[in-house]
Structures are given as C-alpha cells and as structure tokens.
Amino acid sequence: MSFANAWTIARRDFRSYFTTPIAYIVLALFLAIMGYMFFNMLAYFNEQAMNYQTYNMGHSMSLSEGVIRPLYGNMNVILLFFSPAITMRLFAEERKNQTIQLLMTSPVSLTDIVFGKFLSATLFVAVMIGATLVYPITLMIFGQPDVGTLVSSILGTFLLTCCLLTTGILFSAMTENQIVAVFLTVCVNFLLWIISWSAYSAGPVWSDVLMHLSLINHFMKFSQGAIETADLVYYFSFIFFGLFLTHRVLDSFRWR
C-alpha cells in the first residue's frame, strides 16, 4: 500500500464533500441536534445540582457523569444515523458514474483505493466531532470536568464511528444505489449495536460472545474514562475486517 496514493484519493473525496451539499447538510443538522442536546443536558444538570445544594444531599454531582457521558453516548446514536450519509456515495457513485474505471485503471492498488476512501470519511467525521469540541471547551471554561474522561470519550466516539463508516463503505461498494447502501448500513450497524440484548437470554458462552460483538458495549469503558486494550483491539479489528471485505467485494466485481 502506498500512503501517497491513498492520500490522493482521500483528498479528492474529502473535497467533494464540500463541493456537493452533503457536507453542509450533515454538518448543520448534526451541530443543531448536538447543540440542542448539550443545552438541555446542561440545563437539567444545573437544576439537579441546585436541588442537591438546596437539600444538601451529601454528595456532589460530577460533570463527567451528568453531562459528558450522556453527551457522547447520544452523539454515538446520532452518528449511527448520520454516518451512512458520509459513506453512501464513496463507491456507489463511482460505480454508477463509471468513474471507478479511472481508479481501477490507474497505477494504484485496490488497497490504496479502499484506504483512501476510508481516510476521507474519517477525516470528515473528525471535522464533525471537532466542531462539537466547543461543548467541552465551554465546560472547561465554566467548570472543572475530568479531562481524562473527556479525552477517552472523544477517542471512543471517534473509533466507534470509524466502525460505522467501515460498514457504510462496505455496503457502498456492494451496490450502485445510494439509498440501498444507506438502508443496509443503518440496519446492520443498528443490529451490531443491539446484538448484546440477546446476551441476557443466551447461554453462558454465547452471552459472552454476543456482549463482545456489540459495538456500543466496547464504548462503555471509554465513557468511564478508561482506554482498554480489549476495546481498542475490537474497534481496530472491526475496521480492518470491514475494509478487507470491501476490498474482496470490489475485486470480485472485476471477475464478473
């Protein structure tokens, strides 16, 4: 794999988010929803904190538990629904417009192409998450939130979203139809999200397996301020496996 080649592709795709309406719509709606959530969480936290003070309930409330954890927990759910909009066109549009021929007949490897696409999507998500940094910055100006929890929450959110993007890229490679790609992506990501629900009724071994497969379960530790190797390994292998499948899917099309 050549990073320079992947970068050439990533750069073009990243720029084309901004030459089409996608970037503006996704960013504007995402920030509006997140802003609304942040405002309400803060208001609720304020009220609770005042109650605690008034009735002197013995222990104080933490910003980590009251604001940061629900904020990033919710951001993940919003990103679950927003991420397909970022990935849907990456391959589907190239195939539909036949521009994929340009990539496939250029002296770059399929790995370069897949990684370049992934890179452009992650860059865009980085911009999205980066734009929400105003909320933690606000917290830091007016309070003392736990920086460790904040950093691990942001990192966890980013890694989890990268997994969501990987699924999106895979389905974008499978179809020429962007609507189909979006629909499949949301459904499969959602299933992987709630797969742990059946852990409660499954047997002892399967329950463990299902818990480990769940996308959101691996975020729990991040939201508590702990970055654990097991979670990192899960997210990175998820991304690797998804991109690997994308590579296989694209390669198989050539043989038909």
Binding site: R12, T19, N97, Q98, T99, Q101, L102, T105, S106
Partner: peptide
C-alpha cells in the same frame, strides 16, 4: 498490473469524469 497501468492512458466508453470538479 501497476506497471501496465502506468504505461497506459485509457479513455473508456463513458468518460470517467467527476461532474462536481
């Protein structure tokens, strides 16, 4: 394939152009 692709300039039946660029 990489060496071959480097040596070739290819115009497919449908020109592979990005409309938004």
């Amino acid at each position: 394939p990489i060496e071959v692709k480097r040596a070739i300039g290819y115009l497919p039946e449908t020109p592979p152009i990005y409309m938004e660029m």
